[in-house]
Amino acid sequence: MTTDTDAPRDRHLCETCTEAYPTARLLVLHRGARHPDALDATEIEAYREAYYEEERELKSFRIRALGVLVLLYFGFLMLFIMYAS
């Protein structure tokens, strides 16, 4: 895989597969999802925390996505009522 080496940013390297991530949190999420058996106790705790934090973000995203879907549905319903004959 090609990665951007010019970026003057921190590289958080995965010690299992050498993939690099720009933040510690992304590395934690990567290791939790890809190498669940290679984690030690503190890493498991960090992963759980990051996972639940993300769960909260996903929840708020889902609410907004649901709002967009409802708007789309009723918007198109109105358009069909007005323009389809």
């Binding site: 895989m1 090609t2 990665t3 951007d4 970026a7 690099a20 991530y21 720009p22 933040t23 992304l26």
Partner: peptide
């Protein structure tokens, strides 16, 4: 926020 390039 990623090291993936546009090409990859």
């Amino acid at each position: 926020d990623t090291f993936e390039t546009p090409l990859s």
